[in-house]
């Protein structure tokens, strides 16, 4: 590996020189670092050896005699139509795939013309590159993936169906309301027409019968009074008596003393008079608390 060591040293030297150059031009920033993210040098180094004659010589050395026949090589050259972007995985793999497909087509034609067997017959069993157990694992993984996709699909479908049904339901309700409105409208119209045509008031009974058409559809029977409990036999009169009756006298006195209603804040505050007014205090208690004395 002496050669490779040398080579690496050489590369190091290259880089050192480059760094120096960079330092001279722009001492503060380090713009070269971003370029190094890429695995390639941006421009070819000039020191690189390229011995074309030597290479061709070696090629002549190792290559097989020219009439060795294609069967020995089995190699096919395929034109690559356009440049492939390396970082775009999909197009790159597609390019490789198309190359392989075209290659097999060509090779197949050649082999066919030579009368050689191409694909393995179905009943030819032999050792494969990947073992059966490995293929089993591959298969199981594929199945699991398929199942996952199916499940996700089902879930999505259910979700969609739910959304749709909700919408339909809303639509239905709307339609029903509209229908009702229309019905009422039509009846009103019909009645107006009837009034105009001279039947106005002529037939009161029928009008009373159709009272609900005025927009208040159903009125509960008037038997029921508001504010009466369902089990109240007196019809709410027992409670009314208590409520409406006169205020007791005691209440009046208390109200005058403590106040009734209104804001409490202002009443409870001390003012100049109230602070000096000691009427409310018991004179006995000033002499001292008996319990405390003990």
């Amino acid at each position: 590996m002496g050669v490779s060591n040398k080579e690496s040293r050489q590369f190091n030297e290259d880089s050192m020189e480059e760094d120096d150059l960079e330092d001279v031009s722009e001492p503060e920033s380090e713009p070269e670092s971003e370029d190094e993210e890429d695995v390639k040098l941006t421009e070819p180094s000039k020191k690189a050896i390229f011995n074309r004659d030597g290479l061709l010589d070696k090629l002549g050395d190792i290559s097989w005699p020219e009439n060795a026949g294609w069967v020995h090589k089995l190699s096919v050259d395929i034109d690559q139509e356009q440049q492939v972007d390396v970082n775009d995985d999909l197009t790159r793999e597609l390019a490789f795939y198309t190359q392989a497909v075209e290659g097999t087509r060509k090779a197949f034609e050649k082999l066919q013309s030579m009368g050689l067997p191409f694909l393995r017959p179905e009943d030819y069993y032999a050792e494969m590159v990947k073992t059966d157990s490995h293929m089993e694992r591959v298969k199981s993984r594929l199945l699991v993936e398929k199942k996952k996709i199916e499940e996700a699909d089902e879930r999505r479908k259910a979700r969609d169906a739910k959304k749709l049904s909700k919408e339909i339901q809303a639509q239905k309700l709307k339609e029903r309301a509209k229908q009702k409105k229309e019905d009422i409208e039509s009846v009103k119209k019909w009645r107006k027409q009837r009034q105009q045509s001279g039947f106005a008031g002529g037939d009161k009974g029928s009008e009373l019968d159709l009272a609900f058409e005025d927009g208040k559809p159903f009125e509960k029977s008037s038997n029921k009074r508001p504010g009466v409990a369902p089990g109240d036999r007196s019809g709410g009169k027992a409670r009314q008596g208590v409520k409406v009756g006169k205020k007791p006298k005691k209440r009046d006195i208390k109200d005058s003393k403590f106040g009734y209603g209104g804001r409490k804040g202002s009443k409870k505050q001390n003012m100049a008079e109230t602070t000096n007014d000691l009427r409310g205090f018991n004179k006995d208690s000033l002499s001292g608390n008996k319990k405390r004395k003990r």
Binding site: E127, M128, V129
Partner: peptide, 28 residues
């Protein structure tokens, strides 16, 4: 999966014939 030991078809992209070193690599 394929047979173990069946002879592969080698396909090369055409830019292997572009330069001397690629030619050599292709041969190897």
């Amino acid at each position: 999966n394929h047979l173990k030991g069946s002879r592969p078809i080698l396909t090369f992209s055409s830019n292997f014939d572009k330069d001397a070193h690629w030619k050599l690599l292709k041969e190897m």
